[in-house]
Design a binder for these strands. Structure first.
Lengths: 244, 244
DNA sequence: CGAGTTTTTGATTTTATTCAAATACGGTGG
DNA sequence: CCACCGTATTTGAATAAAATCAAAAACTCG
C-alpha cells in the first residue's frame, strides 16, 4: 500500500547502475541462444560488442534510424511506438527482459518503430554485420533468427486478434494475462508485477482510451479479480480474468 | 451495373482453369526474387516442384499443419484467418497475386493460420527443405527471406495501427487505399477492382461489423468518393478517400 | 428458376469516447 | 526530509460511435 516494492518485471532495475559501456554481456539467459548448442552460443556471444544502458524515457532507436544492430534486453523494459501519418501514436509492443528488439529493421535497412525505455534498462547490442556473419557460418543461428522473426509475426497476429475481436474489458484482461504468462515463463511470479506502461500506454496498445482502461481496472478490482496500486498489479483470480 | 466485368486483382481467374499439378511455375514475376540476380533467381527457380490450383473456398493450409512448404501466389487471391480460443474468426490478411504466403510457419514448424482461396487461384509451391538449402547456398536468397519476413512484421504493424487508432470510416478507406496501391504497384489499375472479400471478411479484417462496412461504403458512395456494385469497387476521389 | 447467402437499410441499444474536474503520485530542488 | 509542481489517475456526466436486432432486397450458384 505504501512504497511500491520492486517485483518481477522490474526487479533488476532496482540494482546498482552499470557504468556506461559495461564490459561484455552474457547472452546465455536471453532469447537469442534458445535451442542453440554451447558451441553455437559461444559463436553468438563473440559477436556482441557491449551492453548499453538507457534511462527511463530515453530512446534506443528511432523510426528511420539505420538498422545496424539488434538488441536483447538484459534488464528493465521498453515499449515500441509508431507514429502515424496524422500524428497519432500507437504503442506497438511491451518488451521485457530477455526479449529481442529491432528485428523489424530487416525489411529495408531502417528501423520501423521507436523503442523507448519504460524504466532504467540495459540491453545487449549485437552489431548487424557481425551477426550476419554468424548467420552465414552457423545454420542453427540462422534458423534461430527466422524463428524469432516468425515469432514476431505470430505475436502481432495475436495483437490483431485482440484489437479486432475483443471488447474493452476483454482486452485489458488479455494484456494482464499475457504479461503474467511471459513473466512466469521467465521464472518470475506471474501474479504480482509492476507494469511500467502508463494507463495511456495501455490504452494505446489496446486501442481504447486511458479512461476506459482505468474504469476497467476499477471494475476488475471491485469484482475481486485483482488489486491495483498505481502501476503495481496483483492478480487475485486468474480464472475470473480469463472468463472476462 | 449488370455483369461484373473482371478487373485487376481477379483478372487471371477469369482465364481457363489449369490442370491440377500444372507444369512448372515461373517465379520471375513474383515476390521472392525481387532484388536477386538472374543466377540467384535461377537457383531459386530450381527448388520449385510444381504449382497447385485451389478453387474458391478451398483451403491451402490449416492451423497446425506441418510447415513443409512456402507459397507464392500466381493468380487469384486468398485470405488468412485465425480462429481464437472462444471460437471467433479474425481475418488476418488479404493476399494478392505475387504475394508470398506461409512465412509464419517458421516459428514452430506449424502453420499459425488458415489460408482460404477467395476465388479460384493458383500458387507456386516451394518445398521448405529445398528452399532452406538454397538459403544456405545463396546469401542473397537468405537476405530476401529475412526481408519478406520482416515486411510481414511491418505490414502487421500497419494493421495494428489501423485497428488501434482509426474510426470505422477511416478503416474502410485505409483498406481500399491499401489494395489500390498494391494493385498499382503490380501494374494493375488501382482505381477499379474486384474485391473478393465479403462485407463480413472486410469487417473482420477491420475490426468492425459487416453492417458498419456496408453503411460506410454507402456513405462514401453518397459523398461521391467511390462507386460500388457488389464486390466491384470503383474509386472516384482518391484525395477525398485519403482525407477520410 | 429457386434456395441459400450476402448486402443494404432502419430502429434501438450498448459500448466506449469525450469533456471535465478532483485527487494522487513521483521526482526535484530547497 | 519535505514541500511543490507537473504528470498520471480516477471518477462522473453527457455525447458519439458502433453494435445489435430485424427485415427486405439483391445476388450467386447449382
Amino acid at each position: 500500500m505504501q512504497t511500491l516494492h520492486e517485483t518481477s518485471a522490474s526487479a533488476h532495475s532496482a540494482g546498482p547502475r552499470h557504468a556506461a559501456h559495461c564490459s561484455t554481456c552474457s547472452l546465455r539467459q536471453y532469447c537469442m541462444p534458445e535451442g542453440l548448442s554451447a558451441t553455437d552460443t559461444d559463436k553468438l556471444q563473440s559477436v556482441i560488442v557491449n551492453a548499453r544502458n538507457i534511462r527511463r524515457g530515453e530512446t534506443l532507436f528511432r523510426i528511420g534510424d539505420t538498422f545496424d544492430a539488434l538488441y536483447a534486453i538484459r534488464s528493465g523494459s521498453l515499449k515500441t511506438v509508431v507514429t502515424s501519418a496524422n500524428g497519432r501514436d500507437q504503442v506497438m509492443g511491451l518488451h521485457l527482459g530477455g526479449d529481442a528488439l529491432g528485428l523489424e529493421g530487416f525489411e529495408n535497412g531502417h528501423h520501423a518503430c521507436r523503442a523507448v525505455a519504460l524504466e532504467d534498462s540495459s540491453v545487449c547490442v549485437v552489431p548487424l554485420s557481425a551477426f550476419e556473419r554468424a548467420c552465414r557460418e552457423t545454420t542453427a543461428i540462422q534458423r534461430r533468427l527466422l524463428q524469432l522473426l516468425s515469432r514476431e509475426v505470430v505475436r502481432k497476429s495475436t495483437q490483431t486478434m485482440i484489437l479486432g475481436t475483443l471488447r474493452a474489458d476483454e482486452r485489458v484482461a488479455a494484456l494482464l494475462l499475457d504479461i503474467s504468462s511471459r513473466l512466469t515463463r521467465r521464472g518470475y511470479a506471474g501474479s504480482e508485477f509492476n507494469l511500467r506502461f502508463t494507463r495511456d500506454d495501455m490504452g494505446s496498445f489496446l486501442g481504447i482510451t486511458l479512461e476506459t482502461v482505468s474504469r476497467t481496472l476499477s471494475r476488475f478490482q471491485a469484482k475481486g479479480l485483482l488489486r491495483t496500486d498505481g502501476k503495481l498489479i496483483h492478480i487475485l483470480d486468474f480464472e475470473g480474468l480469463r472468463a472476462v
